[in-house]
Structures are given as C-alpha cells and as structure tokens.
C-alpha cells in the first residue's frame, strides 16, 4: 500500500509493495519519458536517424543511380528512377540496422553516468530501465523511418503493393528495429566508451549492409561475395521490405533469361518468413544477454 501523509509540512511517501506487470509497465513509461526528455537537450542524437539516411538516399539515388541498372537492363532515365525506388528499401533496412549502434552508444553513456547506480538501488523491476531505453529508441527509429519515407516519396519511391502490405512492411521494419535495439543494449553494456561502441558497431555493420542486396543486386557479384551476401540476414530483410512495398523489378531478370538461372538460397526465396525468424532469433539473443548483463551489474 502506498500512502501520502503529512509530517512537519512535508509529504512522506511509503513506496508501494505492488509489483507485477502493471507496475513494470508504468516504470517503463517513466523511463521512456526520461529518454525522450533528453532529446530537446541533445538534438544531435536525432541526426543519426534522420540526416544520415537522407544523405544516403540523395547520394546513392542520384550519384550511383545514374550509372546503375538492374541486371540485364541498360542504364536509362527509367532505370535511374527505378533504382531510387529500389534503393529506399535498402536504406530503410540499413538505417534500422544502424539503430543497434545508436542504441549502444546511448546505453554506454547511460551506464557511464552514476545515475544507473541510483536506478539499481530503487525498488523497480530489472527490465524497466532497458525496456524504457528500447521503446524510446523505437520512437527515434520511427521518426527516422518517417523522415526517410517522406524523402523517398519526393524522389519517386512509393508503396506499390497495397495498403495491407505497406503496413506489414513498416511492421517488419519495427520488428527488425526492436531486435537490433536489443542487441545494441547488450553491446552497450559490454564496452566502457561510446567511441568503442561506435567503432565496434561500424566495423560489424558496414560490411553487413554493403555486402548485401541493399544497394545493388547481388547477381553480378563474384561468387564468394554473392554467397555471403545472399545468406546475409540483411539481404533477406531488404528483399522482404522490397516485396511488401512493391519495389521489385517488373521483369524478373532470371525468369526472363536475361541472366543465367540458378537456385536462390532459401532466405531469399522466403524473405518475409526468413526475416521473421531472424527477428525472433536476434531479438531473443539480444534481450536475454542484455537483461542478464544488466542484472549482473556493471562491476562483474
């Protein structure tokens, strides 16, 4: 029972015995509030999720787009316009995957602050701090995706496979984001310095996003790279998002005999299912490790 009574003009509050889901959700809400309250005082944090993807859309879309055509096609004004639509799916996924880095950096700064000690000494659930961070990051990511979608619309992208599929596409991005955030929360607790988190993140994630179908089709890559790229979870995610937004080439170059036929690996044949599996696997691993690490404390 919690109660407020007045003693010597000041209110005294005895913390409630209550525990359970309701209390935990309320705590998570408070931590979401905390993390979002940081934004007005450090707006540069939002630059990562907004400015960078826009730069990618413009640079890749117009610089590379003017020279890239789908396999079997020649470069024309039409191919450049299609490439920009094609590219957006890749950049959606890329920016969502990069959320693992921004989250990790946020967590490192969080953990460095003494305030974590105070949170740990409060009668609150162990997962609230992390849950609040995850949901706040998700909000930031949502903002990034919105900005990017608007930017995409300006350069000719559109969700062309119907409303239901478009909703599914955004839901899938949210799922990927959540899994990446969980991994980021774990990694953020492993390192002591935001720069290290950033370095680890970039070293792991740049190759993963570039050695994939995010920016160019994999068909003409050298075989060793193509094999890696097509099994790379990023490719399945990008392919799933492209299918749900209807941004795949109108003519399948392989079916049309424009490039040699071959069997695609299972994740690319079933990209949505593969992506869901990746979300569950990466999300579960990330969440388990993150919660375990947090409950062990930072001195372990």
């Amino acid at each position: 029972m919690s109660s407020v009574t007045a003693t010597s003009g000041e209110s005294t509050f005895i913390p409630s015995r209550a525990s359970g889901l309701g209390k935990t959700l309320d705590e998570i809400r408070v931590f979401v509030w905390r993390n979002l309250s940081h934004i007005p005082r450090m707006p540069e944090r939002l630059a990562d999720v907004t400015v960078m993807p826009i730069m990618f859309v413009l640079l890749f879309g117009y610089v590379f787009g003017s020279a890239i055509a789908m396999p079997g096609q020649v470069v024309t004004a039409d191919s450049a316009a299609f490439y920009r639509s094609y590219l957006i799916g890749g950049i959606f996924v890329q920016s969502v995957v990069f959320m693992s880095i921004t989250t990790a950096v946020g967590v490192v700064s969080d953990m460095k602050e003494g305030v974590i000690d105070r949170f740990r000494s409060l009668p609150i659930s162990r997962v609230s701090v992390l849950g609040g961070r995850a949901i706040a990051s998700l909000f930031e990511g949502g903002l990034g995706i919105t900005v990017m979608a608007l930017c995409g619309l300006l350069v000719g992208w559109g969700a062309r496979a119907g409303f239901g599929n478009a909703v599914a596409g955004f839901a899938l991005l949210a799922g990927i984001a959540l899994a990446m955030i969980c991994l980021g929360i774990y990694v953020g607790q492993l390192v002591k310095n935001p720069m290290t988190a950033q370095a680890i993140g970039f070293t792991a994630i740049f190759p993963l996003t570039f050695a994939s179908n995010a920016f160019v089709p994999t068909d003409n890559m050298p075989v060793w790279l193509r094999t890696f790229a097509e099994w790379n979870p990023v490719s399945a995610m990008v392919q799933a998002v492209r299918e749900l937004f209807g941004n795949v080439p109108a003519v399948d170059p392989m079916a049309a005999g424009l490039i040699p036929a071959r069997d695609l690996p299972w994740p690319l044949e079933n990209p949505v299912l593969a992506t869901l599996i990746w979300i569950v696997v990466l999300g579960t691993i990330g969440m388990t490790l993150a919660v375990r690490k947090y409950s062990q404390g930072k001195d372990r």
Partner: peptide, 20 residues
Amino acid sequence: AVDEILSGYQNLFLIGRLYG
C-alpha cells in the same frame, strides 16, 4: 548519481514516479 541531461526538477520527479 543523477541524470546529467535532465534538470534538477526532472531528476526528482523521475525518482518519485519510479517509487510509485
């Protein structure tokens, strides 16, 4: 052990809310 980015008021409000 205080949140450097929040204000003093926000810090105390936060702790109060977390106590329920």
